[in-house]
């Protein structure tokens, strides 16, 4: 699963790049989201063991040896939820900022500095 790991890392870097290069707040949040997704992908990839199946206990799975490590998968579930919450929160902020100043340029919000 090296490929997904690399993909995850690429997504993380891409997301970071987006956060750093885009001036629009929404796009920054999208960047964050991409990064988050990359992390999730990374977690899953690390937890994956070759030739094994998902850690869902059903008839196809007889023993623990057949499934991948279940912990990362569980973690990802939580992480996704949290990521969602964070993203939602960020978007809420974006809405509020737009309401107050009518702008979504991040460089417009420099009231606080130094």
């Amino acid at each position: 699963m090296l490929l997904t790991i690399i993909l995850g890392i690429i997504l993380i870097v891409l997301g970071l790049w987006g956060m750093l290069s885009q001036k629009n707040i929404i796009k920054i949040i999208i960047g964050f989201s991409i990064m988050d997704t990359g992390i999730h992908l990374l977690i899953l990839s690390i937890g994956y063991i070759k030739d094994r199946t998902a850690p869902i206990m059903n008839q196809a799975v007889q023993s623990a040896g057949q499934v991948i490590d279940p912990v990362p998968s569980a973690l990802v579930l939580t992480a996704i939820v949290i990521g969602l919450a964070i993203t939602a929160l960020m978007l809420t902020y974006a809405v509020k900022l737009y309401e107050i100043k009518g702008s979504l340029e991040i460089s417009d919000f420099k009231e606080l500095k130094w």
Partner: peptide, 9 residues
Amino acid sequence: YTGDGQTYI
């Protein structure tokens, strides 16, 4: 500390 969120990132 420019005040720009992006700079902080």
